[in-house]
Simulated scan of single mutants.
Amino acid sequence: MSTASISAAARKTSLALPILVGGGVAGLLDMTSAYISFGRYMPIGIAGGLVGAAGRHVSVGQYILGLGIHYFIAFSAAAAYCLASKKLDFLRDHFIVCGLFYGIGFFLFMQLVVLPLSAYHAMGPYQYRGLVQGLLVHMFLIGLPIAASLRMFSR
């Protein structure tokens, strides 16, 4: 089998498993980190980004909405990385470096696009500790698991 046919076969593999595993693991690790850092009501804060001031009221519905939004974002991040790997083979081959940089890019996207567009309209000034913690969490707990799941499950 030639190198070209192996590459073509790799592109035709299903990405459902890497997306499900990568998004699930990244979502779980990120939510665990958020629980440790910000407390058990973090999903309600996430829901508040969508519903605004109504998100300040603690309810089961708000909690479930926050978890749903969180995992939707995690699975979307995994899907974006896995779909990009169909054209960019180096994302699979150099998964450690690419996963870490993907985590940085994802952190910047969340801070500079998603949060300012949310109902909170969150924009700086940022604290140094929060930036470093956010970068490390997104690099090692989101980017790397997504890239590793692609590497492990797309062969």
Rank of each mutant, 00 (worst) to 15 (best):
I6G: 00
I6R: 13
A8G: 03
A10F: 08
A10R: 14
R11C: 04
K12M: 06
K12A: 12
T13A: 14
T13F: 01
S14W: 08
L15V: 06
A16N: 06
L17E: 01
I19A: 04
L20F: 14
G23Q: 02
G24L: 05
G24N: 05
V25S: 03
V25L: 15
L28C: 07
L28V: 14
L29T: 07
L29P: 04
D30I: 12
M31A: 10
A34L: 11
I36N: 00
S37E: 13
S37T: 11
F38T: 03
F38S: 14
G39E: 08
R40E: 13
M42A: 08
P43D: 02
A47V: 07
A47T: 12
G48I: 07
G49I: 12
G49D: 10
G49R: 07
L50I: 11
L50R: 08
L50E: 00
G52C: 06
A54I: 00
R56T: 11
R56V: 07
R56M: 04
H57F: 10
H57Q: 11
V58P: 00
V58F: 01
S59P: 05
Y63N: 06
I64W: 09
L65H: 06
L65F: 08
G66R: 03
G66Q: 02
L67S: 00
L67P: 04
L67Q: 10
G68Q: 08
H70I: 06
Y71T: 06
S76W: 02
A77P: 11
A78L: 00
A78Y: 09
C82I: 05
K86S: 04
D89H: 06
L91T: 03
L91H: 03
R92W: 08
R92L: 07
D93H: 12
H94P: 04
I96P: 05
L100Y: 05
F101D: 02
G103R: 06
I104H: 01
I104K: 03
G105R: 14
F107Y: 15
L108V: 15
L108A: 15
L108D: 03
M110N: 06
L112P: 01
L112W: 12
V113H: 12
V113F: 11
V114K: 01
L115P: 10
P116E: 13
L117Q: 13
L117R: 09
L117E: 01
A119V: 01
Y120E: 11
Y120I: 05
Y120H: 03
M123A: 07
G124T: 06
Y126N: 08
Q127M: 13
Q127L: 14
L131P: 06
V132T: 14
G134T: 12
L135Q: 14
L135S: 11
V137H: 04
H138N: 12
H138G: 05
F140R: 09
L141N: 05
L141W: 04
I142L: 10
P145Q: 07
I146W: 10
I146Q: 08
A147V: 11
A148Y: 15
S149I: 02
R151W: 14
F153C: 02
S154G: 04
